[in-house]
């Protein structure tokens, strides 16, 4: 019997559905609780619970990344790979990868100092968007309306710690219909897509912030952009692609590597966890 190791720190609805999907396919789910384990990274002793393949589901990005790397160094296969996860976990690295692959993405400038950040903003023009390079759920993604707000937000971030002192500043994409697209890439297929609609007066469409989800047809354009974006960050895995729609068309905002699908399943009726597990089992062969 095939065993799939699920590396978790939280077991949410998403993880429970993955566990069910594994059982339904006659395989064995092995939940690896991040909190209950230590790793020998110099010796060859291996106390990692044995599985044929591992699926990374950690909510804590950095811990998840380290565990994936350790598992890979010990010869195990992890979905997604460490290299690709490292790129997705960091918006700066993702943008570099997307730009290198020639994929349309919002114009982004990076600065490490408030004064040079303000200079960058003169080029981008206001309003612009600032984001922490590591982070999710729309946390601290802010609209910079003018020079004064930009300065005070950057000043605050300097006090928030090292993670926030890399100023990732981006052109503001005015959304047509206030909608974003989230598509799901599993292996070499786009299996689902939803629109995410922001609540009134909110820049961010995140469902964690009250945004609403609607079904979205997978058009050839969405399919093509999504597959290229997944490929650009390493491919061969499960990805959530965030697409913004502005007046110049679709641009890829970012690529997520440990996708949540609790909103997508009820809205689209697509068995996202089932399709993820089918792909994981395919990779065991």
């Amino acid at each position: 019997m095939v065993t799939i190791g699920l590396i978790c720190d939280r077991v949410r609805w998403d993880e429970k559905e993955l566990i069910k999907a594994v059982r339904k396919r006659g395989a064995k789910p092995l939940i690896i609780d991040q909190k209950n384990i230590f790793f020998d990274i110099t010796g060859c002793s291996d106390n990692i619970p044995e599985a044929d393949i591992y699926l990374q589901r950690s909510v804590s990005t950095l811990k998840g990344l380290y565990i994936s790397k350790i598992l890979e160094e010990k010869g195990h296969t992890v979905i997604n790979s460490f290299e690709s996860s490292r790129i997705c976990a960091d918006k700066l690295l993702t943008t570099l990868a997307l730009a290198k692959a020639g994929i349309p993405t919002p114009r982004t400038l990076v600065a490490f100092d408030i004064e040079s950040g303000l200079e960058a903003l003169e080029q981008l023009r206001y309003p612009a968007v600032i984001k922490p390079v590591i982070g999710s759920w729309g946390r601290f993604v802010a609209l910079l309306k003018d020079r004064q707000t930009a300065r005070s937000i950057m000043e605050e971030r300097v006090f928030m710690g090292a993670l926030y002192q890399t100023f990732y500043i981006q052109e503001y994409i005015e959304k047509i219909d206030k909608k974003d697209i989230r598509s799901f890439v599993v292996g070499d297929r786009v299996i689902a897509a939803i629109y995410r609609v922001a609540v009134k007066d909110e820049l961010r469409t995140n469902t964690a912030l009250g945004g609403r989800a609607e079904p979205c047809p997978i058009t050839p354009e969405i399919e093509n952009l999504s597959l290229r974006a997944a490929e650009a960050v390493g491919g061969n895995g499960v990805y959530g692609i965030d697409i913004l729609i502005g007046d110049k068309g679709m641009v890829v905002n970012e690529v997520n590597h440990t996708v949540e699908f609790h909103t997508t399943v009820p809205v689209t009726g697509i068995d996202v966890p089932g399709l993820i597990i089918d792909y994981v089992l395919e990779r065991v062969k």
Binding site: V59, S60, T61, P132, I134, W137, L163, G240, E260
Partner: peptide, 11 residues
């Protein structure tokens, strides 16, 4: 009760 979310939490 679960602790508040960490700064690197998410997808």
């Amino acid at each position: 009760v679960v602790e508040l979310s960490g700064e690197d939490w998410g997808e």
